[in-house]
């Protein structure tokens, strides 16, 4: 128990440190706000253009609301999936990996702690996307079953972090210390970009891509969130191929799949990362210090 408390206290210490660092660059904060605004506006403009002719049933009829949820999932995924590899790389290259390893911290704690910088940078974008969507572009939301909504968001966060840890494990396991990390690239830049359904319902995709989308937590999270939060959405009509096959309520199936994926990806991520550390301890590639 004391061990666990120490890990939590350390994550808080990391958070404070990252906050101090993040706020010490005053100009960065201004450019960050502008960046969020411009990016969100661009996405909304595109969504308005495409939305006129897009049939998003059974996820209601407000395409902007539909896209706000897609954008939110994108921001969460971008941080949780994309960041672990970058953070492992950062602590390896700045030499602090050795120091964290020679401390009572678990192997994962420094990564979670340092990720707080990205949490600061990316998570508020979710709120701003909701705010801009609501203020300027006519988005509306219902908060039907708020506990389920929170659960879905948490499971999306955990499962994408699990994939992020699989990606981070390649740093040691495959000794990929520079250049493009292939796991992150394949998941984030190819499969998720194409099949996650950030900006369109996956029912418009070719059937093969719909099947591919079933391997992504995003698919189930977005299905559940849109059914629960887009006004007029239907909670019973099946959309995903798996929902059509199995006779389970779509949102229940989404939750089951998200839970399974969360456990699976987190377990795999931690397992592979620890294996990577062990491998690096054997071949001498664990630390930059030579």
């Amino acid at each position: 128990m004391k061990y666990l408390i120490n890990q939590v206290r350390s994550v808080i210490a990391f958070s404070k440190r990252e906050y101090i660092i993040w706020t010490s660059y005053k100009v960065n904060i201004v450019t960050w706000i502008l960046d969020v605004f411009i990016n969100s506006t661009l996405f909304f403009m595109l969504s308005l253009l495409m939305g006129k002719n897009t049939n998003i049933a059974p996820y209601g009829s407000n395409y902007v609301s539909f896209v706000v949820l897609g954008l939110s999932a994108y921001y969460i995924s971008y941080t949780n999936l994309g960041d672990p590899y970058d953070r492992v790389a950062r602590i390896y290259w700045n030499g602090t990996m050795d120091l964290y390893l020679l401390s009572p911290l678990s192997l994962i704690t420094p990564i979670i702690g340092i990720m707080y910088r990205s949490v600061l940078d990316d998570y508020p974008r979710v709120l701003l996307a909701f705010l801009f969507g609501w203020l300027f572009f006519g988005a509306h939301f219902t908060f039907y079953q708020p506990v389920t909504i929170i659960l879905v968001v948490i499971l999306l966060g955990i499962s994408t972090f699990g994939i992020g840890m699989i990606s981070a494990s390649s740093f040691f396991l495959l000794n990929l210390k520079v250049g493009t990390e292939p796991i992150k690239f394949i998941f984030q830049d190819i499969i998720i970009a194409l099949a996650a359904g950030y900006f369109y319902p996956i029912s418009i995709l070719p059937y093969s891509l719909q099947i591919l989308s079933l391997t992504l937590p995003h698919t189930y999270a977005l299905d559940a969130l849109r059914r629960l939060m887009v006004p007029g959405a239907n909670v019973t009509v099946p959309v995903l191929p798996l929902q059509k096959v199995l006779n389970i309520r779509p949102i229940s199936l989404d939750l089951i799949m998200l839970t399974v994926m969360s456990f699976l990806f987190i377990y795999l991520g931690f397992f592979l990362y620890i294996k990577g550390i062990e491998k690096a301890r054997r071949n001498g590639t664990l630390t930059r210090w030579q």
Binding site: N6, R9, S10, I12, A13, F14, K16, R17, L99, Y100, S103, P104, L105
Partner: peptide, 10 residues
């Protein structure tokens, strides 16, 4: 102070 917490000092 950061490292003190990392090293388990309270």
């Amino acid at each position: 102070m950061f490292w003190a917490v990392v090293y388990g000092l309270e």
